[in-house]
Design a protein around this nucleic acid. Structure first.
Lengths: 116, 116
DNA sequence: CGCATCCATCGACGAGCGTCGATGTCTGAT
DNA sequence: ATCAGACATCGACGCTCGTCGATGGATGCG
């Protein structure tokens, strides 16, 4: 997984999406549809250089280290986060394409006219 | 519910969102993070006038009428869909603000500079 | 070597979700 | 009044998900 190719650039408005397209994007939405994971993404995206160490992330939540690790795994599997090991520490970084894909999905329709 | 006021216009990038903000937006994301519901939204948004009759929607899915009705209720409760009864039929319409809120959430950061 | 730290994985539990068949509630026509 | 159709609601089922404690590598230090 962690495939960079999302069901990119097909606004949900304008043209009805196919069941296949839906099944392709939904995992990405499911990954983001959790308060802890959404905060994780936000924390990492807003951090220096768009990346953060797990050691720092753990302190920002009340949940167990195991739970945070689980959520990071979910986000990584969905292609939202990149994972890089540096010595003892692990750093996660946000994939902008993932967030952009969602933003594009729900962006206002292209106003029609460019579509054949 | 069906409150029009979403946790609007606060990109997840740039500044880390608060737990309260997360809890506020997550229901909206959860509502959209289902293949059937996503297709429902897309079908309605892409229909004539941005609205569609339940009778037509039922035919577009393999699921039971009860299931479709349930999903429509979820979307309505999340503030994604508006509901209007016309005689025997019920019409649902998409609330553009709901989709825009999500699009804004995951839009690229304001490029920094406007932030204090 | 032994040991401490960081992180992932495992197994288990309870809660929530998607789905269904059956039933209820309206509306409009006969 | 009776009936048929359009949606909503109810109760139940299985499955997934979020969470935890405990355990298992991996890395670096003394």
């Amino acid at each position: 997984m962690t495939d960079p190719g999302f069901a990119c650039c097909t606004p949900v408005t304008g043209t009805p999406i196919s069941p296949e397209q839906a099944d392709q994007v939904v995992p990405l939405l499911k990954a983001l549809a959790d308060p802890v994971r959404l905060r994780l993404v936000s924390l990492i995206a807003a951090a220096e250089g768009g990346e953060a160490c797990v050691c720092d992330l753990n302190d920002a939540f009340d949940q167990t280290q195991a739970t945070i690790s689980h959520h990071l795994k979910v986000l990584h599997s969905a292609g939202v986060l990149d994972r890089e090991k540096r010595g003892v520490w692990v750093w996660y970084a946000v994939r902008p394409e993932a967030l952009t894909a969602v933003a594009t999905l729900f962006a206002p329709a292209p106003l029609a006219g460019a579509r054949a």
